[in-house]
Design a protein around this nucleic acid. Structure first.
Length: 643
RNA sequence: GCUCAUAUAGCUCAGCGGUAGAGCACUUGCUUGGUAAGUAAGAGGUCACCGGUUCAAGUCCGGUUAUGAGCUCCA
């Protein structure tokens, strides 16, 4: 039979040859590192017979696919077996691979905690030491059911039962045949290929991801081909931990949370300073881009939310207020706004709008409350009260494309200035829970896709993830350590304006319904500040830092000079303080460095006599002696860049 | 909302039935020191909240609240 290789060369092999035979035919080195094959694009076990002519590529252990297969074998054959050895009554559910690792879901008679992980790891190592080869057996549905019934693996039974397949269920065994697992494969040919691994955590997970189902125990692990790669991955995790905005927020005295107001931020002076700087920056950009800033009420009668559709579609996430006994005579039910859009329509509806007024771009730093489920809150990243850099563009259908283009430019400039050079665009289409007719949705989805296509931006489609009132573009940025954050959004809405009776008079003198575009760049200030903190590991750019300069005296004789410098800095609008305490300079440097103050001026006798400053920047141990004049000018320039 | 875990001094944590501990931070004394911790002393706690078991409860048990890791959600 004729086998075509990835480089388009081909080889003749006898009928009945396997991937392993092919690898051997190509070279002994390849045969040694081969773990599986891809036959016409489908991954197969290395020893599967290749049925007739095919394009085949050998998957080696050091390839991405190879590592994934290794992780898969590690979880399905080694972790699963170790769990069965240690907890014989447990039942196996599923064990897939994930980014950088794998997990296995089990139902366990005894709860497994993170303390048990090292015990399980030891058991896994014992299994790996057997260097057992892995073989598979193809069986019919009834035989597969029989095997799992005997083994009391009820989840496997469910999987087999629900499968559309009739036969060729793949059962994988190790040499001693004492453990069997159902798996679509492929697996490593033997356990010698298993690299370095670590079990990382244990948590609960629903069977099939459905919260109506039983909660299983999920054991997570990470694995790489060698100790070095594993270690570097673990180091990355540790780096992310070091950047945790909750930890840095405490160290830098930015904000706190407390029991009485879960999910709502108490901003301290330093954190609020960042917030204000960021808001001023955005405010400036909005003005430059012809947005009108407005402000709408926090608490609004349910009637408006009923009209907008929120009451129907979003009520369980809204904070509802009821008037107490004292005001019983004006009984009404209000809701704290979860979004600003209905409010903006109210402003739009004041007075008659002409097509000449469009596009009309409203912006609001709108404080919204959403009742997030208790288990979902996470520092600044997921809160119940937050301020959006929200905006609503009222325009005609003809203006959709130009507004899309203007917005993407607006957003990418802001991201770049805040230190994020790359972002991806996601196009989300109609969700199940929605308002508006299918025809309207067809129109909205087509318009948005046409706009993004004509503008030439790359995008990917996320089916069913749209807002309840319309399709949207989401903007996902990548931070300094490669994590992705969905921030900006651009949502087309052909429904709300109509529901709330917004109209404009067209050229034809008739009333028309405007298109509404809901848009945000940062998303929420709270979350975005969290992202900034983690992106910069607390070392914010000079213009954003709450405290920009500390002038630290080395000896008390120079305190007057330090105070003079602080005054000069403050006069230039730079947030500077002095540190005149009776402490050593290294103590002061340590303290202000750990608080991430970008610039420390160390002032001693030499500096006072020469009217210079010794400058130390955060993240560097170098110091530079500059003329006071020059140092002031440099910082003034730097501060002006984005202010 | 679900599962599991956690809640002790401002912070980080130890203590796990018998009168509350450490390091850092804080206050005071000494120290005026050149770029990531000078030194000594002192002060500081209804051990999250409510209930139970016990002669005796941070300590054991139940509940509540919050937080953490996941899951499910995130218009």
């Amino acid at each position: 039979m004729k086998i075509t290789l990835p480089d388009n060369s081909s080889r003749e092999l006898p009928e009945g040859s396997s991937g392993y035979d092919l690898a051997k035919d190509i070279g002994p080195g390849l045969a040694k590192s081969a773990v599986a094959v891809s036959v016409d694009g489908v991954q197969r076990d290395l020893h599967d017979v290749i049925e007739g002519d095919a394009s085949v590529s050998i998957i080696t252990i050091d390839s991405d696919q190879g590592i994934e297969i290794m992780r898969h074998t590690l979880t399905a054959q080694v972790l699963a077996r170790a769990i069965k050895n240690l907890y014989p009554k447990s039942k196996l559910a599923i064990g897939p691979t994930i980014d950088d690792g794998f997990y296995y879901d089990v139902e366990s008679e005894k709860s497994i905690s993170s303390d048990d992980l090292s015990k399980i790891e030891d058991e896994m190592k014992k299994i790996i030491k057997t260097k057992s080869s892995i073989t598979k057996k193809l069986v019919s549905k009834s035989e597969a059911l029989k095997v799992f019934k005997e083994n009391k693996e009820s989840y496997k039974e469910i999987i087999v039962n629900e499968s559309k397949q009739k036969d060729n269920f793949q059962l994988y065994y190790q040499d001693d045949k004492k453990f069997v697992d159902l798996c679509r494969g492929p697996h490593l040919p033997n356990l010698e290929f298993i690299g370095s691994f670590k079990l990382t955590k244990v948590s609960g997970a629903y069977w099939k991801g459905d919260s109506a189902n039983a909660m299983l125990t999920r054991i997570y692990g990470t694995a790489f081909n060698n100790e070095k790669d594993l270690q570097s991955h673990l180091d990355n995790l540790e780096e992310a931990l070091k950047r945790d905005h909750r930890k840095l927020g405490k160290e830098m005295d930015l904000f706190h949370f407390q029991d009485e107001a879960p999910g709502m931020v108490f901003w301290h002076q330093n954190g609020w300073s960042i917030y204000r700087k960021l808001r001023n920056f955005i405010r400036g950009r909005l003005k430059e881009n012809d947005y009108i800033e407005v402000n709408t009420p926090q608490v609004i009668d349910r009637k408006l939310w009923e009209a907008s559709g929120h009451w129907d579609k979003y009520r369980e996430n809204m904070f509802i207020t009821e008037i107490d006994e004292e005001h019983a005579n004006e009984k009404r039910v209000n809701a704290l706004k979860p979004m600003n859009c209905p409010g903006h329509v109210q402003i739009y509806n004041q007075g008659i709008k002409s097509y000449k007024d469009l596009p009309l771009r409203y912006a609001e730093f709108g404080l919204c409350h959403r009742y997030e489920p208790s288990g979902t809150m996470h520092g600044l990243m997921r809160v119940r009260a937050f301020t959006q850099d929200d905006g609503h563009i009222f325009c005609t259908e003809d203006q959709i494309e130009s507004e899309t283009g203007l917005f993407i430019k607006f957003l990418s400039d802001i991201y770049a200035d805040l230190g994020f050079k790359n972002f991806d665009i996601k196009l989300s289409t109609r969700p199940e829970m929605r308002v508006g007719s299918d025809e309207t949705w067809d129109k909205a989805e087509e318009a948005l896709e046409a706009a993004i296509k004509n503008l030439g931006y790359p995008y990917r489609i996320d089916e069913g993830d749209g807002a309840f009132y319309g399709p949207k573009l989401d903007f996902v940025l990548t931070d300094a350590i490669g994590r992705e954050w969905q921030c900006g959004t651009f949502q087309l809405d052909f429904n709300l304006a109509e529901r709330l009776d917004a109209t404009y008079v067209g050229e034809d003198g008739q009333k028309h319904t405007p298109v509404m575009i809901h848009r945000a760049v940062l998303g929420s200030f709270e979350r975005f500040i969290g992202i900034l903190i983690e992106n910069y590991a607390g070392k914010l750019p000079f213009w954003l830092a709450p405290q920009q300069v500390v002038v630290a005296s080395i000896i008390s004789d120079v305190n007057d000079y330090s105070l003079e410098i602080m005054d000069l800095l403050n006069k230039e609008g730079i947030r500077a303080e002095v540190d005149l305490r009776n402490e050593k300079i290294s103590y002061k440097v340590r303290e202000h460095s750990s608080k991430k103050v970008p610039v420390i001026f160390a002032i001693g006798n030499k500096e006072k006599i020469d009217r210079t400053v010794s400058v130390r920047r955060i993240g560097s141990t170098d110091t530079k002696v500059l003329d006071l004049e020059k140092a002031l000018n440099d910082l003034k320039q730097e501060n002006r860049e984005l202010n």
